[in-house]
Simulated scan of single mutants.
Amino acid sequence: MIVAQVLKTKGSQVVSVRPGDSIASITRTLAQHRIGAVLVLEGEQVLGIVSERDIVRALAALGEAVMRMTAGQLMTRVLFTAGPASTIQDALQLMTDRRVRHLPVLHADGTLAGMVSIGDLVKARIAEAEDEAEALKSYVATAG
Rank of each mutant, 00 (worst) to 15 (best):
L39M: 05
E130T: 07
V116K: 01
S22A: 08
D54M: 03
G43E: 15
A129K: 06
E44A: 12
L79G: 10
G43K: 08
G110D: 04
S25G: 03
G144Q: 08
V6T: 04
R125F: 10
H107S: 00
V6F: 15
Q89N: 09
E130G: 04
I2E: 03
L112H: 08
D120K: 01
E42V: 03
E44S: 13
R57P: 02
A61K: 13
M95D: 00
I35P: 06
R57C: 02
Q13N: 13
A37N: 01
K8C: 05
V46E: 00
D54F: 02
L30I: 09
M75I: 13
I118S: 00
G63N: 06
G114S: 08
M95V: 00
A82I: 04
V38Y: 02
V6Y: 13
E42M: 09
H102M: 09
M115R: 02
L30N: 01
V14E: 02
S117I: 03
A82K: 07
D97F: 07
V78G: 02
K10M: 02
L112P: 03
A31N: 12
Q89W: 12
I2P: 00
I126C: 03
L121C: 10
E52C: 06
A60W: 11
A60N: 05
L30R: 07
V38E: 00
V122K: 11
Q89K: 15
I118C: 01
V14T: 04
M75P: 11
V38P: 00
M1A: 13
T76S: 14
Q73W: 03
V40G: 01
A141P: 04
Q32R: 11
G83K: 02
V38H: 00
M1C: 08
E134S: 08
D109E: 05
P19L: 13
S12F: 05
Q5C: 07
A60M: 13
I23W: 11
T111C: 05
R53I: 05
L92K: 03
L47V: 07
G48Y: 14
K123E: 15
D109R: 09
A65C: 04
A58H: 09
V17E: 10
H107K: 03
V15P: 04
E44K: 11
A82M: 09
T96H: 12
V46C: 11
Q73V: 06
P104S: 03
V140C: 06
G43Y: 14
S86W: 15
E134F: 11
L92Y: 05
E128P: 12
H102K: 10
A24I: 07
G48S: 07
G48V: 08
T87N: 01
G11V: 12
H33I: 12
Q13D: 15
A141H: 06
R34A: 12
V140Q: 06
G144D: 01
R34F: 10
R34W: 09
A61F: 13
V116Q: 03
A82S: 12
V15D: 15
A141C: 05
H102N: 07
K8W: 14
L47P: 06
F80P: 01
R101H: 05
D90S: 15
S117W: 01
V17M: 13
V38N: 00
D120V: 07
E64K: 10
D131C: 05
V3R: 06
T27I: 11
E44C: 06
E44R: 12
I23F: 12
L30F: 08
E132R: 10
L59A: 08
R53T: 03
E42L: 11
Q32D: 08
V6E: 09
T76D: 04
E134I: 10
R68S: 14
Q13L: 09
L106T: 00
